[in-house]
């Protein structure tokens, strides 16, 4: 699937930290090199399969926790095997890497291999990136619920502008540019994270009121999406 998904806000990935993320069931080790490159790697050392999120980021290299093999930022190529320090590791010794960029305040990952992936969706100027919401529902249920249920504006007719994309939804009213953008991260086939960004500049008091309204709306959206997902699978053991 040649698509970019937001998996985190950029601020969640500080230097010298290795973050653990999940996209479409693929475990990712996400880290930022000292020179600023964003890496999203298969979370597994090619040697003995240990999660690289246990390892440490050492500037331009990630070091595995188990045998301290070192892997270079961007390429994932192994640079040192301490058991045989005098030998240059073969070019085949490398971590599986995915395309990753930081863009508009989010970390974007594309799981497609081999082809040159197109750039991620542009998110218009972000005023407030909001709390990311975990939902126990598949992406399609979350998308539907947002389209039906997110109050776009208290006065304007609901839903004026929705983009058609399944994973980047922008909404506003006819008189304004986009007010809110949702970036949907399909964690697995049945779990989704909604990253949100609010746009346009408003006065401080109006801004706080909007954030509160947004927060309340997101609680409703989550409950409704989970209810729909449970109904769709005939489950719903918990009411």
């Amino acid at each position: 699937m040649n698509r970019w998904f937001a998996v985190a806000r950029g601020t969640e990935v500080p230097r010298r930290h290795v973050g653990h993320y999940l996209l479409l069931g693929q475990e990712l080790a996400v880290w930022r090199s000292d020179s600023g490159a964003i890496n999203a790697w298969e979370n597994r050392c090619p040697h003995r399969g240990v999660r690289l999120t246990l390892g440490s980021c050492e500037g331009e290299e990630l070091r595995c926790r188990y045998h301290a093999w070192r892997f270079a930022s961007v390429s994932g190529q192994c640079t040192l095997i301490p058991a045989h320090p005098g030998q240059k590791p073969a070019s085949t010794v490398r971590v599986r890497v995915f395309a990753a960029v930081e863009h508009d305040g989010f970390i974007w990952v594309n799981l497609a291999q081999g082809e040159s992936p197109t750039a991620p969706t542009r998110v218009a100027h972000v005023l407030d990136s909001t709390r990311s919401i975990f939902v126990d529902a598949p992406l399609y249920a979350v998308r539907e619920t947002l389209l039906d249920g997110y109050p776009v504006d208290s006065t304007a007719s609901r839903l004026a502008v929705w983009s058609k994309d399944a994973y980047c939804l922008s909404a506003g009213n006819p008189d304004h540019a986009a007010l809110v953008t949702f970036l949907l991260q399909p964690v697995t086939d049945f779990q989704t994270v909604i990253h949100g960004a609010l746009h346009t500049t408003v006065e401080e008091t109006a801004r706080l009121a909007r954030l509160r309204r947004h927060n309340a709306a997101m609680g409703t959206v989550r409950d409704e999406a989970e209810r729909r997902a449970a109904a769709a699978t005939g489950g719903g053991a918990t009411a």
Binding site: E27, R44, R51, Y66, I81, A83, H84
Partner: peptide, 24 residues
């Protein structure tokens, strides 16, 4: 123990190509 519990896959792959090995 934390190393063992963070190896993927949890079962031991017997195919020599499944994981990279060195002389050590």
């Amino acid at each position: 123990r934390p190393i063992l519990e963070n190896q993927l896959p949890k079962r031991l792959p017997l195919d020599a190509k499944a994981e990279i090995s060195v002389r050590a």
